[in-house]
């Protein structure tokens, strides 16, 4: 299946007919609502909050945020502010008279809110669009870093963001999460139905200073059916198998390398890589 990101920029791809198709398809509606509920459970909100919806489109996820607790939204009804780059999508949202405030804005240009505005942020099927730059003035990395930088600043301390997105490949997954970490977030990827056609990737982001215990895995603590897979080597700190330059191990490794290349290398002795005395 072709990826819409590869065909056209989002503001042109989601034209009037595509927006209507997207909003009226019951299949897409169901998938979006499932993902929104999943994201809400990861956000773990207990009281009505101010939420940012990045790439709100026609407000499919916003409608769920505006629902009350009895209708299945934890901590609801929330007040939300959404932005999207497609004016046709926003047009559909206006027709539906969604309760949140709408903006026509590009997430890749930053988030124009003052620091500490939002309790949480949610983004459903949007940030893969940031991995494409449409002009030579812009780059995917620049767009991602502006977005995550702006998002980090606009969330309050202890706030959380959950971004569901469709990465093209592992490389893109890594690029997005690295950009988030660089902006200062604690980040983790949660994958539902991994390896199947229905795989859904959620990027879970936390801003420090909250009541989160431990690292990012604290978000999913106590949730059913979630396995935590640590990044290999993350616990050790520093890169795996890399010796400190100038240390004994490093010198021995270098000598071995040189020897293998066929260079003349002095034999190892008890003096190899040893510190000189201070008096020397």
């Amino acid at each position: 299946m072709s990826r819409p990101e590869d065909t056209l920029p989002p503001d042109l791809f989601y034209n009037d007919s595509e927006s209507r198709k997207y909003t009226t398809s019951s299949r897409i509606q169901r998938i979006q609502s499932d993902m929104t509920h999943r994201a809400l459970s990861l956000l773990d909100l207990h009281s009505p909050s101010l939420i940012l919806d990045v790439g709100c489109g026609s407000g499919l996820s916003g409608e769920i945020l505006s629902q009350t607790e009895d209708e299945g939204t934890p901590g609801g009804p929330h007040v939300w502010i959404g932005f999207d780059i497609s004016s046709s999508m926003l047009g559909v949202a206006l027709e539906k008279e969604v309760e949140g405030d709408l903006f026509l804005a590009d997430a890749g240009q930053g988030v124009p809110f003052r620091p500490g505005t939002f309790d949480a942020a949610i983004s459903i099927s949007a940030i893969q669009w940031l991995c494409n730059a449409e002009t030579s003035l812009d780059s995917p990395l620049g767009r991602l870093s502006r977005f995550f930088g702006g998002l980090y600043a606009s969330l309050r301390r202890g706030g959380r963001a959950v971004c569901q997105f469709y990465p093209k490949n592992d490389e893109q997954k890594k690029m997005v999460s690295q950009a988030a970490i660089k902006a200062g977030f604690g980040a983790g990827l949660l994958e539902d139905d991994e390896g199947t056609k229905n795989a859904k990737t959620y990027l879970v982001l936390t801003v420090g200073g909250g009541d989160l215990d431990g690292d990012i895995t604290g978000v999913v603590r106590g949730m059913d059916g979630v396995d935590v897979m640590a990044r290999p080597g993350a616990a050790k700190g520093g890169k795996r198998g890399q010796e400190v330059k100038g240390s004994k191990g490093w010198i021995l490794k270098k000598k071995e390398q040189m020897e293998r290349k066929g260079k003349v290398v002095k034999a190892n002795s008890k003096y190899t890589g040893r510190k000189r005395r201070v008096q020397f």
């Binding site: 932005f83 780059i85 926003l90 206006l94 405030d101 709408l102 903006f103 026509l104 804005a105 590009d106 240009q109 930053g110 124009p112 002009t135 003035l137 812009d138 502006r146």
Partner: peptide, 14 residues
């Protein structure tokens, strides 16, 4: 317009 502010910026201002 219609309650929707336009925050799209031209490339050189980003």
């Amino acid at each position: 317009m219609e309650g929707v502010p336009n925050f799209l910026l031209p490339g050189h201002l980003v």
